[in-house]
Structure formats: structure tokens, C-alpha cells
Design a protein around this nucleic acid. Structure first.
Lengths: 217, 217
DNA sequence: CGGGCGCTTGAACAGGGTCAACATCCGTGG
DNA sequence: CCACGGATGTTGACCCTGTTCAAGCGCCCG
């Protein structure tokens, strides 16, 4: 944690941008890297463009999370990050974050911790995408959204999917139809209620069991 | 890059352990985190244990690479890392690396760069595992090994797989039989020669095309 | 009110998994 | 040095999960 004087110091370098409207890109692949971004409200998705021009979604980002870290080493963004709903963002200039981190040990440690956490979580994600069945993927995904939603003070059992079925399926490596079918099946089996984007988890135990337990990613 | 005096400073904290024999664990899930490890020679694999006790391989590591970074934030290792062949390792105590990085800006930046690179590469890997067919996965895997081998001075077109078919298939999310069949097919089509673990790429262009081009991961 | 996008559902198909049998390599001990 | 056994790798036949193709519904917004 940072002490107050340090927070003030950090505050001076951060700019709160005006809300990004739905559909707008925060950055694009090829953009020179200058800032990392902390999400204050809203929801964004990150995606890469494959050769054939189709997007490949690599993550959905909620308030409290940091995006842009993958570009530090190359100084060029390698993906696109786009708002799914109007979102407020803090832009943190990386050059200044780096020099500040020399004098504020806890800031340096925070930065490294955030990156380490992302590495660790991405391994979990990789395992899930690589090894699980479609049902397990969707169950894990719902549990993960639920946990992230609860973590920042929302409801654990009732929330909105902020992405389309198409985005969701793309992220999980499934066909839209498969995602839709499985969500319908969950609903039929009274594991969840789902109407359009609005989800209510009715049987968390069953959902966890389908997911193959624990998987908090 | 580090200047000479800095390298000397860094050298004082690094211990070169005696070679780890084949099959020995460098660290295990649950071990308290104290060091990150630079690989000097050999080959290691990292894996998680799923609920049912089966291992899920998340990476193969070659000389020049750093392992253990995922544990910085939690201070506990979340995976197992095991030598596939006898391997020489440099153990770098993290507490000292952290404090040194306060006084040596380039060291701090190197650390963050290495982590950023790992995040970025893992996204590429995730995309591959999530979206590609079995053929594409194997072609990408061979190209990746080839590139990593060439990068550190080995042959680009001729190298040994240092892992079993089982490890390879597990990593790519395939059945052993599928991996074996596809490698045989590549050989039949004169794309590669393969005898047990020894691989020779005969038609890199064809392999790249199967992989869906570029994918350097 | 009408058009389009987002979503659902059904039917047919195929890529890859599973099961099973067999081949080959390698280490170990007689 | 050879014989044996276990681990590793290959190949075939069949099956299942998830994709593809196709049609239709319903919500939202102009």
C-alpha cells in the first residue's frame, strides 16, 4: 500500500480522461505505447486481429483493472482495446510511473505485483481454454464474472453480461451457436436464469461443479 | 542494457546451482516464493495440477528464459517446474533483485520488460491454443521451437524435441494420438523429417502456411 | 411500423477424442 | 552381451462434441 504523500505524488501524473463512448478504441495495435490505463468504470474488451482480419478477443476488463501492460517491452501496442459501454479511464504516463517507482519502493512493488498477477491469471485462463469442454468454459466464465463483480461491490448472483454472445463465444473459442445452446441448457436445468444479457445464478454449487470446481478465472 | 559495474553488482547476488538432474523439480506449487530462476542450459517444463490430479503443462523453458515470475504477487509458487533434461540454473533472490532495482534504473526496466514480454507472448499463445486446429497448433509449435532454438545459436531447421509426445500433446490441448498422427502426416507430406524426438524441417514455407503464417509463439 | 442485428434452435457433418492393438526404444539385470 | 519389461510412440476403427449451414424469432431503434 502507498502512504498518503505518495498517493498525492502519483495523483499529479494521472489524468482522468472524459468517458470513452461505447465502441471507441482506447488504443489500437501499432499505436506507440506511452500510457497504461486504469479502468474506473465501464467495461472494455481487448482483441488481436488474425491474418484473415477476424478479431480474436483476449480479455474483458472491468473497473479496477489495468490495461496496456503488454506493450511496455515493445513500446508498441499489440492489441486493440475498445469500450463495450461508456467507460471512464485514468491514463498513467509510463515514463513518469517508471521514474516515480525508483523513489517509491511500494509503487515499484505494486507495478511488479500487478504484472505478476496478470501472468499468473493468464496461465489459469490458458489452461481453461486449452483443456475444458464448452460447458466447463461457460460455467467458468460465469463464475469468473460473478467473482469479479462481487469483488468490486456488485451482486454476486445477478449481473449483466456486457458483451454480445458473439464476443463471449469468440473469447472462449466456441461457435456462437454452441455458447447460446449451452446457456439455454443451463437455464433449462435451473442453474441460471438468462434473458438477453441479464444473468441470475440460481445454483452456484451446480455451476461450480460443471466448471470443474475452483477455477477462479 | 547494464553497464559493467552494475553487472558485477548483480553477479554478487546470483548463485549458480549445480545442475538439476532430469525429472527433478526446481520448485513446486505451494512452495514459498523467494527466487526467480534464469535458465543457463537444459530444458524445463512448467505445469499445474488440475483437480483430478492430472498435470496441465503451461510452458517449456529454454536457456536464456526466466521462470518463477508468476509467484511474485502471491509469494507462493502456483505451478511445478521440472527439468526435462539435466539443466543448469541461476537462482536470483527476489528480495535483493527488488532492492537493487531501486538503484539501477536499467535493471528495474529490464525486469518490467521481461514481465511485459511474458504477458504479451502468453496472449499470443492463448490465441493459438484457443482458436487453431490441431494441425495449426503443431505447425506453430514446431516453428516456435525452431525460432527459439535459432535465437540462441542453434540450428533453425534441425533440433530435438526435448519432451515426450505426451507432454507435447498435453501442452497443445490434444490427445497423444492426434499429435502423433499429425506429425506422421507432416512427414508423409515431406514437410518435416521426424524420428522419435529428432526433427528436421524440410519445408518451412509449407509449415508456416499450415500454421496460419507469422505465429512466432 | 419495419428493418436489422442479436439471439435461438434444429439438422447434418467433421475434427479430434477414445479405445484397442501393436511396434519400437531403452534401461536393467542376468 | 543378450533377454526381458516398461515406457514411449504409431496406427486403425469408431464415436462424440462442437461446428456449420439454415431457418426463424424478438428486441431495439430509426
Amino acid at each position: 500500500m502507498l502512504v498518503e504523500s505518495e498517493v498525492e505524488h502519483l495523483d499529479t501524473i494521472i489524468s482522468r480522461t472524459k468517458p470513452i463512448p461505447k465502441g471507441k478504441h482506447l488504443y489500437s495495435a501499432g499505436d506507440p505505447f506511452s500510457h497504461v490505463y486504469a479502468i474506473r468504470s465501464g467495461c472494455l474488451k481487448s482483441f488481436h486481429n488474425s491474418e484473415n482480419g477476424e478479431e480474436q478477443i483476449t480479455g474483458f476488463h472491468l473497473p479496477g483493472e489495468i490495461v496496456g501492460l503488454e506493450a511496455i517491452s515493445t513500446k508498441v501496442h499489440s492489441n486493440f482495446t475498445q469500450a463495450l459501454i461508456p467507460s471512464e479511464i485514468c491514463a498513467i504516463p509510463y515514463a513518469e510511473l517508471d521514474s516515480l517507482s525508483a523513489t517509491i519502493p511500494s509503487l515499484r512493488q505494486q507495478l511488479v505485483n500487478v504484472m505478476s498477477k496478470e501472468i499468473s491469471e493468464n496461465y489459469q485462463l490458458m489452461l481453461m481454454l486449452n483443456q475444458k469442454t464448452a460447458e466447463q468454459k461457460l460455467a467458468s466464465f460465469l463464475i469468473n464474472l460473478s467473482a469479479r463483480n462481487a469483488h468490486r461491490g456488485g451482486f454476486e448472483k445477478e449481473f449483466n453480461l456486457l458483451m454480445t454472445r458473439s464476443d463471449l463465444a469468440n473469447y472462449l473459442g466456441l461457435a456462437i451457436e454452441t455458447a447460446s445452446r449451452i446457456l439455454s441448457r443451463f437455464a433449462k436445468n435451473d442453474v441460471i436464469d438468462i434473458t438477453r444479457r441479464s444473468v441470475k445464478i440460481k445454483n452456484m454449487a451446480a455451476l461450480s461443479q460443471i466448471a470443474g470446481t475452483q477455477c477462479h478465472i
